[in-house]
Design a protein around this nucleic acid. Structure first.
Lengths: 331, 331
DNA sequence: TCCAGGAACTTGATCGTTCCAATCCTGCCT
DNA sequence: AGGCAGGATTGGAACGATCAAGTTCCTGGA
């Protein structure tokens, strides 16, 4: 049974005091270069690793970031979170942090989880995926002074807290420009009900681009809840109208999938573009707007480490990333 | 600034010693009922939460379980891990544990991560998703005496370590019986190259069921790496053979998706059944074999807590779950 | 009456690190 | 030679829990 290697073991071997070893690790600049090297050699030779629990007890910092893992909402969008999580875990690791998961079924329970995670595990920060208007969770965290970043803008007021988001309007604008370039004018939009920040944003990109090209978007869009059958129904309505669109942009891949089925019946030549670039889109050759999830994760970690290291209160950082249109068979 | 609530605060308020409070939390049976209640009231009134770092320093247990999050392999199967992770986080939480993520690109790096996680965070246990023959990771963990469970059998020797798995052979057998019931005899199989435990297992279920029904499976199966184009190619080969199958079972939804395209060209009436019940399958109406991922996660946590609580070495527990055939349009 | 034995509770030590204040050098200036 | 500034290093205390070894109190049997 090899004796456990602590900071004292290293100190003895290097012929210095515990504190000096600690300084080598945490404030190398106060240690003489020659001593620093001697200590580093001892650390390497002994395979020393700082005990996080002991450090945490003294400093109150756990070097842990919490992320909620959701119960696979509609199925198709599930793998979006997957990619984001991977990026998060990877980046956090290189920044010296680890990612911890938690679950919750509603906001109230989620806040209780915050309380527990902060109380018993001393969590350093939280990443929230998606926020609602007047979100009680962000209010709670802000009130407690807990560092956090959201992936998704606070739609009421973008200056409320730090966030990273993908420019949905730019995504649908890219889609619209693509279809305009293909010669289409009457470009339809299958969107979500007015009121959701994300949905409104995506509609806006389509609308502005059409107007900029001199096309009146009136009557070219329809709203519905997310889902494949919903998308099919709405697309069918649009395509059987008096002056039907000759191409369709959808607010999600689920809607686009339904739209594809409607198109197949009405007019297979009508191009369809989805949103999120889910595996389903790739599998079916659906042209779709791809969110840079890995980069979003990287930026989230950057913001968090920034919040954790810098003590002075700075204005909340905001990062807006551009999505990318992935061209496939359907457009 | 409210004073931090420690075990000493609770002790003072309840009029007992620190140790008694500790006993109420960890060994309630040694405390008199009346005292226990008094302490519990103090705990509730003060909102006390045990400081995990302090406990960990003394006990060496972190109440943390590590799971690797993979970089979304082929895209379609990504969301499988998603659902598993959610179940894991949820169950672990109710058992008093938390889930930590880590990433790695190869076995060697993964073992270094183990070393780091154990050394600096005192991780209690690991969950590995998928193992290979002669897996160096399980060997390393076993050698160090670190508790772990794999989701996926050790194919060399099922008694090597504790595991939870889904009975793939039973899944393809269900699929084959379904097709037999529909009147099919010449049922083809699109599988993975011989040698992968999972792939061989899934093939076996198909093969045995056909033989049991008096059908000779010779020439009815083809192998290929996983992927949509691969599946299409192999399915086309099968369907254009001298005596083509009248129905197809595939080792994955990716292969099934390719097969669907081949079928559409050759003979749209040929039923296709996939494996994994991914969102893509649901979106396309593909009949597929569904793995009970949530239950698998629950059982993993059960095995782990069993390993962590019981000191005496018991034979490695093994859990084999039955999948479920989800009927949709394609079969 | 006395004491063994056990249940109930308490006290001091300890885990490994970092904080804080004190001490030790070293070279430079007078 | 002595004083001194400032960097480099050290030793004790503390973080908040649990462990191990007490102490107190009570019950019942000789």
């Amino acid at each position: 049974m090899p004796q456990k290697v602590t900071i004292a073991t290293v100190a003895r071997r290097a012929g210095v005091s515990r504190q000096t070893v600690s300084n080598v690790l945490n404030s190398p600049h106060v240690v003489r270069e020659q001593t620093r090297q001697r200590v580093q050699e001892a650390i390497a030779a002994l395979g020393y690793r700082t005990n996080q629990a002991a450090r945490q007890m003294r400093t109150g910092r756990s070097r842990l970031i919490a992320v909620r893992i959701e119960p696979t909402r509609d199925g198709i969008n599930g793998s979006v979170l997957d990619r984001f999580l991977h990026g998060l875990a990877e980046t956090a690791s290189t920044a010296g942090y680890r990612v911890m998961l938690y679950t919750a079924v509603d906001d109230e329970q989620e806040i209780r989880e915050y309380d527990d995670l902060l109380g018993t595990y001393d969590l350093d920060a939280f990443v929230l995926t998606g926020t609602t208007r007047r979100d009680p969770r962000t209010a709670w965290l802000t009130g407690r002074g807990v560092p956090f970043v959201t992936f998704g803008r606070p739609w009421d007021d973008p200056t409320l807290h730090p966030w990273v988001d993908v420019d949905g309007a730019d995504g649908t604008a890219q889609a619209a420009r693509r279809l305009l370039a293909l010669g289409h004018r009457r470009i339809g939009f299958v969107g979500w009900p007015v009121g959701s920040g994300v949905g409104d944003d995506r509609r806006l990109g389509w609308e502005h681009t059409l107007r900029a090209a001199g096309v009146d978007p009136t009557g070219l869009d329809h709203c519905t809840e997310d889902g494949i059958p919903e998308g099919e129904r709405v697309a069918r309505d649009l395509l059987t109208a008096a002056r039907p669109p000759t191409a369709l942009i959808c607010a999600s891949d689920s809607l686009a999938l339904g739209a594809l089925q409607a198109v197949r019946v009405a007019d297979p030549a009508v191009p369809v573009i989805g949103f999120d670039d889910t595996p389903v889109a790739a599998a079916l050759g659906l042209t779709s707007v791809c969110q840079p999830l890995h980069e979003a994760a990287v930026r989230c970690v950057e913001l968090l480490t920034g919040l954790l290291d810098a003590t002075p209160r700075q204005p909340h950082p905001q990062v807006l990333l551009k999505p990318r249109l992935v061209l496939r068979q359907t457009a």
